[in-house]
C-alpha cells in the first residue's frame, strides 16, 4: 500500500474536526427569519381594531417607505419597545401595525398607557397575515420600501441600539 494512503483516514478525520470546531465557534443565532425578506408584501386587508384608527391593507403600505410593527397588548416585550417606537415616529418615520390575537378595548388601553406611534392598526385575530409575512412571534418589525417590498426584518423588541439601524434601513429604502 502507498504510504500516503495510510494518512488518508487521519486527514479526513482532521478535516471533519476542523469543521466541527468552526461550527462550535460560530455565534449561534436561533432566530427564525422570514423567507419573505426581499419579496413584496403578501396581499391582505385587515379591518380596524380601535375606533378612529383605520385598518391596514396591502395597498395602504405602498407609496412611501414605512415600518410595519407586529405587536399585541398581551406581549410584554412590546411594552418594552414602545418608547423606541415613539422615538422612531418622532424622527418622522411612518409606522403601521398589525395587532395579533387581540381585542379593541385591550389595544386602546395599551396605547393609552404606552403611547401611540401608529398610523394604522390592522386586526389580525387569527394570525393569518402574521404567518403570511413569515413572522414567528411578537414583537417583530418589518421595513417596507415604497414599492411594498420587505427590505428588512427585525425579530424581537427594538432596543435603544436598534433605533439607528432601523432608521438607516428606512432611509435607505427611500
Amino acid at each position: 500500500m502507498r504510504r500516503w494512503l495510510l494518512w488518508l483516514p487521519l486527514a479526513v478525520f482532521a478535516l471533519a474536526m476542523a469543521f466541527a470546531v468552526r461550527e462550535l465557534r460560530k455565534p449561534t443565532d436561533r432566530t427564525v427569519y422570514s423567507a419573505m425578506v426581499g419579496k413584496p408584501l403578501p396581499t391582505f386587508d385587515l379591518p380596524p381594531i380601535v375606533a378612529g384608527k383605520p385598518g391596514l391593507s396591502t395597498a395602504d403600505v405602498q407609496g412611501q417607505p414605512r415600518l410595519l410593527n407586529i405587536f399585541a397588548s398581551w406581549c410584554v416585550p412590546c411594552i418594552a419597545e414602545a418608547p423606541q417606537l415613539m422615538k422612531l415616529k418622532a424622527m418622522g418615520i411612518p409606522i403601521d401595525a398589525i395587532a395579533i390575537r387581540d381585542t379593541g378595548p385591550a389595544i386602546r388601553q395599551f396605547l393609552a398607557r404606552n403611547g401611540d406611534p401608529y398610523t394604522r392598526i390592522g386586526d389580525d385575530r387569527d394570525s393569518q397575515v402574521q404567518l403570511a409575512l413569515g413572522s414567528s412571534g411578537v414583537p417583530e418589525t418589518f421595513v417596507i420600501d415604497a414599492r411594498g417590498v420587505i427590505v428588512k426584518q427585525h425579530v424581537g423588541d427594538i432596543r435603544d441600539d436598534d433605533v439607528a439601524d432601523l432608521a438607516a434601513a428606512w432611509r435607505a429604502a427611500r
Binding site: 504510504r3 495510510l6 494518512w7 483516514p9 487521519l10 478525520f13 482532521a14 474536526m17 470546531v21
Partner: peptide, 21 residues
C-alpha cells in the same frame, strides 16, 4: 467532547499511519 474525540480518534489514526507499515 471535540477535544476528547480528536485525542482518541486522531491519536489512533496517527498511530495507525505510522505503525501499520
Amino acid at each position: 467532547i471535540l477535544i476528547l474525540l480528536s485525542l482518541y480518534i486522531g491519536g489512533a489514526l496517527a498511530l495507525f499511519a505510522t505503525r501499520i507499515g
